[in-house]
Design a protein around this nucleic acid. Structure first.
Lengths: 194, 194
DNA sequence: GAGCTTGATTACCAATCGGTAAGTACCACT
DNA sequence: AGTGGTACTTACCGATTGGTAATCAAGCTC
């Protein structure tokens, strides 16, 4: 129904994703998004009724890509540990060439506090449930209880995600070469701990 | 010089911290902060010249608390592994009863992207350097290279921080009891991997 | 070539934003 | 009693925000 491919909405969604991820929902105005495309903000409001609607469209695009990655992992017909390693590798890759997605998800988590108070919707609920379930179901780790497996899953996702959103800062802090070294070492040391 | 204790600025800083952490810099207006205190926004501008100045004051307050925690860890005269365990425990505790601090730091990391592009200052630079140095210097882990120790340090900080900022969402997702179970298991499984 | 849809425009709006200027209530000190 | 500083207020400002209304040009079908 909603034309996914090559819709004229796509350029707005892509640009809005980048700006929302970099500056947050309130930090990026409709005029900012339109300026990046050399258009006016009213052209955005033609395709999306409100700024909120644009934001929801961006979120569902992010969710779609994330979901495709998760399906790729669950579809892999291999042993549990192989799949877990594959998941972490794919998550890290995803964070590398779709950094805006990961940053927007992080902002969503931060904004949830205010949203929960006001009874707003948690947009990423299905995504989070799927991710954690995937990780806790996969391995029969040496951790004993369900709680410990869940905790370990949160640690793995958190380590990768936080590292991903820290990269621009770390690059400014360390320079590109040290960051690259750390990036190379990241996956191996993470997998080493499984 | 700048009166730390019981200054009339303190209530503004505390309230601003909460709102900035929950909604971000652009999501929380001066009027919002003032309303929470049943005051007018001009009373804020009396104490802080600009909104940016208020934000910097909030950040330095957060940095001060963080720094005190780090000093507490480096001051502990014990073996390297003991200190590392103590650090992770204290970081998790800090995230528990000062959740706004951790959330604001996360927002700073997200905002750095835009700030680096425009040549802005990275407010948390000294804090980050100190944290990572502390972690990489402490243990002679089984990881071989400097890069692998750095990567491991990032993983530990990231796991704790991301878990901390995810808690309101996870509570809404799972309920309080499952979150509590996971929280209890979090530190033990994290330390298990050292 | 009339009519409809699509994508974008210009013009305009009320509300809110951060910030300035001037004034007020209160308190300590002399 | 007068003075000066502190904490805060009311009144106001220009700029920007998200959003509405009306219009216009291009392309399509019949």
């Amino acid at each position: 129904m909603t034309g996914q491919i090559d819709s004229p909405k796509k350029k707005f969604i892509d640009t809005a994703l980048r700006l929302f991820a970099e500056r947050g929902f309130y930090g990026a105005s409709l005029a900012d998004v339109a300026d990046e495309l050399d258009l006016t903000k009213q052209s955005i409001l033609y395709h999306f009724k409100t700024k909120e609607a644009l934001y929801r469209a961006v979120l569902s695009d992010v969710s779609r890509r994330f979901d495709a990655m998760l399906d790729e992992v669950t579809g892999l017909d291999q042993g549990a540990e192989k799949r877990l390693r594959f998941f972490l590798q794919r998550l890290l890759e995803h964070a590398q060439h779709a950094p805006h997605d990961v940053r927007l998800v992080a902002r969503e988590l931060l904004d949830d506090v205010a949203r929960i108070e006001t009874g707003g919707a948690l947009h990423l609920k299905p995504l989070l449930e799927k991710s954690v379930e995937l990780l806790t179901d996969l391995p029969k780790w040496r951790y004993r209880s369900e709680a410990e497996r869940t905790a370990a899953a949160c640690q793995l996702i958190g380590a990768v995600s936080y590292f991903a959103i820290s990269q621009p800062t770390l690059k400014a802090l360390w320079g590109q070469s040290k960051l690259d070294d750390t990036k190379d070492a990241f996956l191996s040391t993470l997998l080493l701990r499984l």
